[in-house]
Computed example of a mutant assay.
Amino acid sequence: MRRLSVIILFATGIVAGCYAQNNVESKKQFAMKMNAGIITEKIQETKAFYQEKLGFGVTFENEFYLLMHTPGHEAQLSFLLPEHPTQQPLFQPKFMGEGMYLTIEVDDVDELYNKLKSEGVKIEIDIRDEPWGDRHFAIKDPNGIGIDLVKYTAQN
């Protein structure tokens, strides 16, 4: 895995749509970085999964929060304990395991597929080529989040 980058499609679409709608009259550009946050009781299992299976590193960690980064530091993903007293109500309910996915682009999807399969990671969608050019497969993390691992191919 030479390069991993997390693409959070739903959030990117929301941010882009809100920015475009709210910025019609203004030409000012805002620098933005983004990381998706998942509220989960399974922080230690999640940390082990992303480190051992996908090569993520830990950017920051305390007793209730974990911030991880892809191997090349291109993107980050965070995890927060539910119902933590330091957090506002918006950030307290735990993720219920549905309605979210991550797309992680990799340089060699076949190599990663073979690695994960040999390690006994359950493959949710077997490796395949799509008519639009993607080659990908899917797994789930300990929180039930679908992870689409993909190699994009330019279409002619």
Rank of each mutant, 00 (worst) to 15 (best):
E52D: 11
E25P: 05
T86S: 14
E61D: 07
G144M: 10
K151N: 15
N35R: 15
D126T: 11
I139L: 00
K47F: 05
N156C: 00
D110F: 03
L81S: 09
V15N: 11
T59K: 15
F64N: 00
M32S: 12
E119S: 05
N156W: 06
E130C: 11
A31V: 11
Q92F: 04
Q44M: 03
P89C: 07
D129N: 13
I123M: 05
F91P: 06
G146K: 06
I127Q: 00
P89F: 08
I7W: 14
F30Q: 08
T86N: 15
E105N: 11
E98K: 15
Q155V: 01
L80G: 01
H73K: 10
L81T: 08
F137C: 03
N62P: 08
M100E: 00
L67A: 02
Q87T: 14
E119A: 02
M68Y: 01
A16K: 13
D148A: 12
K47Q: 07
R135P: 03
M68F: 04
K122H: 06
F10N: 15
M68L: 12
V150T: 11
Y152F: 14
Q87H: 14
L102I: 01
L67I: 13
A75V: 02
Y152V: 10
A48F: 01
S118V: 09
V24S: 07
P131A: 03
E83P: 01
Y113F: 13
A16N: 14
K115N: 09
G57Q: 12
P142D: 01
V109T: 12
D134I: 03
Q76E: 15
A154S: 14
L54N: 01
E41A: 09
F137A: 07
I123H: 09
H69L: 00
N22K: 12
S5A: 03
A11D: 14
L90D: 01
N114M: 13
K117H: 10
M68P: 04
T153C: 06
F91H: 09
D126I: 10
S118C: 03
A138L: 13
G37K: 11
K33L: 06
T46R: 06
Q155I: 02
E105I: 14
C18Y: 11
K28S: 03
V24H: 07
G97R: 11
Y101I: 07
F64S: 00
V121R: 02
I38Y: 09
G133Q: 10
Q155E: 07
S26W: 05
P85G: 10
N114S: 12
D141Y: 07
I127M: 09
M34N: 12
T46D: 04
E83A: 08
Q76Y: 12
I14W: 00
E124I: 10
A48S: 10
M96E: 14
A20Y: 14
